[in-house]
């Protein structure tokens, strides 16, 4: 539940930085007893101020007089006297370490009552006890997805239904991924492969795969899997219309996965820019190169904000982790 998380606010950061941080928090949410999330509306427990931005610097200086939310300086300069600071640009581990330390300090305060307040009373919701949960529940994810979808439908006349697109390379596991999360027996349109695809599998998707999931508000989330072969690109154009977001899967055991990624970024580029996407790399157990870092570097080079995962599409929780990140991305974009 949202109340079982610590919230991190952002001041003065560029939009893409905020988006990346939000995604990172979402990606790592299952690793903490009480995870962090980007604060969209609720009052944050801590705020990251970009001191290289005059607005961020000014607000950070003002925030020094308050105990809560905890101000974190985000700056390329070393600030040895500042208790909470993060070196800019930040890597994932530095951010995660800082937030772990911050969370631990919150928990110590809870144990060591009374809480010492410098300037103003600490609102009750900012010192919640740690929850014995292991992160987000499925229903939390689907509830957030429903909320994002409602906003999306209000903004996009083409969005007559709530649909997620699963796209990507041949043999990446789109059909399996869809089967893993659909609550109905999926509809497949497979034909016997007559070309080079036969080396990998006997049948290939030629129109679409379709699955469904009922959201907490009773609406249906429709899951569309696209064909992987280049000649079926026209189906992607059709299926993406009004779509909420994209789960892009790349088969790392393919001949040239980075080349394939380039291709799919071209096919789905406009859709990704308009909505959001996560990239799942499959079959890394069969072939470890390129690494996730290679993919991240490749995406960053062309300024794509697409979080990257290694994923086993047969594992429901791994698919849900990707969807959670996608939802976090959509929440940030639509906010």
């Amino acid at each position: 539940m949202a109340s079982a998380k610590y919230r991190l606010g952002f001041v003065g950061l560029q939009e893409h930085e905020t988006l990346i941080f939000s995604c990172l928090l979402s990606i790592h949410s299952n690793k903490w007893p009480k995870p962090w999330e980007a604060s969209a509306n609720g009052s944050p427990h801590a705020v990251l101020y970009d001191l290289s931005n005059p607005e961020g610097l000014r607000e950070w200086q003002q925030a020094q007089s308050h105990a809560q939310p905890v101000p974190i300086a985000y700056t390329p300069d070393a600030l040895p006297d500042v208790r909470w600071s993060l070196k800019k640009p930040s890597d994932t581990s530095a951010l995660i370490d800082l937030l772990k330390e911050l969370a631990a300090s919150f928990e110590k305060k809870i144990d060591a009552a009374p809480i010492v307040v410098v300037d103003q009373p600490v609102p009750v919701q900012q010192v919640e006890s740690p929850q014995p949960t292991t992160g987000n529940t499925d229903s939390d994810l689907w509830g957030r997805l429903a909320a994002v979808a409602e906003r999306h439908q209000a903004a996009d006349a083409d969005a007559k239904e709530i649909k997620l697109i699963l796209g990507g390379s041949i043999g990446a596991g789109k059909t399996t991924a869809l089967r893993t999360i659909s609550e109905i027996p999926p509809i497949h349109t497979e034909a016997r492969a007559s070309d080079i695809v036969r080396r990998m599998k006997s049948e290939t998707t030629v129109a679409m795969d379709y699955g469904e999931f009922t959201l907490p508000n009773g609406k249906k989330l429709r899951l569309y899997g696209t064909p992987g072969q280049v000649r079926y690109e026209f189906m992607s154009d059709i299926l993406c219309r009004g779509g909420l977001g994209l789960v892009l899967l790349i088969n790392n055991a393919g001949d040239n996965p980075l080349h394939e990624l380039t291709h799919y970024l071209r096919v789905y580029g406009d859709f990704i820019k308009k909505t959001g996407a996560v990239l799942g790399i499959t079959h890394m157990d069969q072939k470890s190169a390129p690494s996730l870092h290679d993919y991240e570097t490749y995406l960053a080079r062309d300024k794509w904000t697409v979080p990257v995962f290694s994923v086993d599409v047969r594992q429901r929780e791994q698919i849900l982790a990707m969807l959670e990140t996608l939802v976090a991305q959509l929440e940030t974009r639509k906010a």
Partner: peptide, 17 residues
């Protein structure tokens, strides 16, 4: 013809489904 062939196969597969 090439594009129609590809689209036709999709349609036929949908028909089968």
């Amino acid at each position: 013809s090439e594009r129609v062939s590809v689209m036709g196969s999709s349609l036929m597969a949908l028909g089968d489904a």
